[in-house]
């Protein structure tokens, strides 16, 4: 138990002392996972709307793929992206392996199905009557989609939280494509794993505390936004 207190004390010490390495790792974690979540939103919300609102052959099959993708194990995503990004791999000429960009791609691949799936479910829940009504009022297709987005915004925020939570906590893919390079691709999760295997349990606990505080901070902000939306 003393290890836990030691770790928590260490976390405060690292944060208060402004340890430059820890701050860099924390900022990179936010950057990578935040960018990946943004990309996933740009893919997931339109795709979710498309899957929910239009009818085309193979839609249900595609939907099932997305739903399966919501549970895509990060190491599987990591492995496939590694093979593609290796310098002798099909996308090797981009030279992205072991860069934050590679980690963003991996995390976007992990978060996109989550956001797509939740958005699609949200759009499908809007009652058919409301949809008909909007159409009847003479909305263009874009106005129609925008109105629906407003209608389901609470669920979409939930999708953002699920996506962000999924990627900020994953370690398998980040390790594989980033390799935890000091000062370049080291994020909180990979640093935690490293400190554990080095036997520095106190620092590992400190990093995990910082990670949880960070994840909670972002989620809290989003939750407050969501609940404000709920009241009005």
């Amino acid at each position: 138990m003393d290890l836990v207190w030691q770790g928590i004390a260490e976390a405060f010490r690292l944060l208060l002392a402004g340890d430059p390495e820890v701050i860099r790792i924390t900022v990179l974690t936010l950057k990578v996972s935040g960018t990946a979540t943004l990309i996933s939103l740009c893919i997931g919300i339109p795709l979710g709307a498309l899957l929910a609102l239009s009818r085309f052959p193979g839609r249900k099959f595609f939907m099932s793929l997305v739903n399966m993708g919501m549970g895509l194990p990060p190491v599987v995503a990591g492995l496939w992206i590694t093979i593609f990004l290796w310098r002798n791999g099909p996308l090797g000429f981009f030279n992205l392996m072991y860069t934050p960009a590679a980690m963003i791609i991996a995390q976007a691949v992990i978060a996109s199905p989550i956001i797509t799936g939740i958005s699609a479910a949200a759009f499908q829940q809007v009652s058919g009557k409301l949809r008909l009504q909007i159409m009847a009022l003479g909305a263009t297709r874009w106005q129609y989609v925008l109105l629906l987005v407003k209608e389901v915004r609470l669920s979409l925020l939930a999708a953002v939280m699920a996506g962000f939570g999924g990627v900020i906590s994953e370690v398998g893919a980040s390790t594989m494509v980033g390799q935890n390079v000091l000062g370049r691709t080291r994020v909180l999760t990979t640093a935690t794993v490293m400190e554990v295997s080095k036997g520095n349990f106190d620092i590992a606990i400190a990093l995990s505390v910082i990670l949880m505080v960070l994840a909670y901070g972002v989620t809290l902000t989003l939750t407050l936004a969501q609940q404000r939306g709920n009241r009005s």
């Binding site: 960018t35 990309i39 740009c42 981009f94 030279n95 992205l96 860069t99 960009a101 963003i104 791609i105």
Partner: peptide, 14 residues
């Protein structure tokens, strides 16, 4: 385009 520019931005830094 957004994705490409973000990725390019990250690699440019590197």
């Amino acid at each position: 385009l957004m994705m490409v520019s973000i990725i390019a931005g990250c690699t440019g830094q590197k």
